[in-house]
Design a protein around this nucleic acid. Structure first.
Lengths: 250, 250
DNA sequence: AGCTTTAGTGAACGCCGTTAGCAAACGCTG
DNA sequence: CAGCGTTTGCTAACGGCGTTCACTAAAGCT
């Protein structure tokens, strides 16, 4: 009887590599849980090692330092968020573009609300980590997350939902920056004009603003529930995009 | 010859209280400098004490702990920012409301750019400090800062620059929150309608979003200079407020 | 002059990140 | 199976941190 040759996670890896991958995963999971429970300051190699039944120096076989570990889990969290948004998008019938957009954007806020600590480290200020720390992995994951939204936007664009500003309406200096932006994120296909990129940027900035404002709690001294304000911004934002707003069904 | 009885800073305070106030000030200044130079992690009581030629426990006569110190300097920074914006506003002829608004908002961004570390601690995520830390002082300073902007807005409102949404256009749940907000910040004078508060909130969220995006560097992997995007948002934001946009003269 | 309040110190505790040297386990090769 | 390099994890140690406590010395008041 031949052994089953199914593609399992970790296929093609030696036993050693598999167990190594597993402990690295455990490290990241515990680190993320500590981040949630004790805040960014509360993530410490010693505490993680303690919980795993080993000592701190041992972790250096897996991670080059605490900063690198934080970068690793940040990447993980971007992937998590991207998956959540993609799942929300996929949960709506394919043809109903309006509802898909709505659901996706609300899923973004929803994830942020349920993962405040994570969201804060992902979208809050970059604390200066000592030079030499490879940030590439997190950047790559952030790019994947961004692509989730760009896909949504691209669909709106191809459906010609909203009026796209002409090239003349985009100031020259802004045009240069938008071009660089579009090139980097892979939005430079022929049918995506600079005006469209401008609209996208503006919308993204607004979404980012409301959600940060809520998660970072900068209005909570005066406003108990931020959902109505979010929905209001969402509505105004979507009207710019030619998407029909529908109230949130609870 | 009678001694001059001029109102000096620290008047009415005993010698002891004056020198105490001075060292407290020195502590805060060094703390803030360390924040700028070494980041939020780099602010330590021991380092501050060392620089002052004393030992860390001595600082506990002035500050109840590191968290409290961070709250103190945060308050200081809000005052600093408020002063900067107010000065910008005052630097423009009184009658030229449009230019005063423009200048003030640009001053906000300008201060943020020149004080990234400060801005990040003020407007970034609230890191959870141990319970019992009095956050009141910073909140009070933040309120003073907010008042700077509310004054600008109030002027626009009284000049009837823009169309104010009617009460019916404000959803009920949002209305409740906006009312609470207006009450807390002292905007509940009769001539400020709920629709006006809604417009103000929306504008503030957008300004906050674009500046955070720039300072926290969440687009800098794809966009070198954020000024054009800021100016573009500013323009669209001001058009909503019925304020004439004028390009930035360098 | 005497007494009280205050400012600052030194020692200590328990955290933390990180490095260096060492011993055991693992897994491959002959 | 024996041998041997590689990988893994440990202990010990260094220096830094926040914070508490007991104590001294100075400052200010009566």
């Amino acid at each position: 009887m031949a052994k089953p040759q199914i593609e399992r996670p970790g296929a093609g890896l030696s036993r050693r590599e598999r167990v190594r991958e597993a402990t690295l995963l455990e490290i990241k999971e515990i680190a993320r849980r500590h981040l949630v429970e004790y805040g960014p300051q509360g993530v410490s190699l010693r505490a993680i090692a303690r919980e795993m039944g080993m000592t701190a120096p041992g972790l250096y076989r897996y991670v080059s330092g605490i900063d690198a570990l934080l970068v690793l889990i940040t990447a993980q969290m971007y992937d998590d968020l991207a998956d959540t948004v993609a799942a929300a998008d996929a949960s709506v019938p394919e043809h109903d573009t309006d509802q898909r957009i709505l659901t996706s954007l609300r899923a973004f806020r929803g994830w942020a609300l349920e993962h405040r600590a994570e969201f804060s480290t992902m979208f809050g200020p970059r604390n200066q980590l000592d030079p030499g720390t490879d940030i590439g992995e997190a950047l790559e994951a952030a790019r994947r997350f961004g692509a989730t939204f760009f896909t949504l936007f691209d669909r709106l664009l191809s459906e010609e939902r909203f009026e796209v500003p002409s090239e003349e309406e985009v100031p020259a200096d802004l045009a240069r920056e938008l071009r660089a932006f579009a090139d980097t994120v892979g939005l430079s296909t022929p049918h995506v004009s600079l005006g469209a990129v401008m609209v996208l940027s503006s919308c993204w900035v607004r979404l980012y603003g409301v959600v940060c404002m809520e998660i970072f709690q900068h209005l909570n001294f005066a406003m108990a529930d931020m959902e109505p304000l979010f929905e209001s911004e969402l509505r105004s934002l979507l009207s710019r995009l030619g998407v029909e707003y529908r109230p949130f069904e609870r």
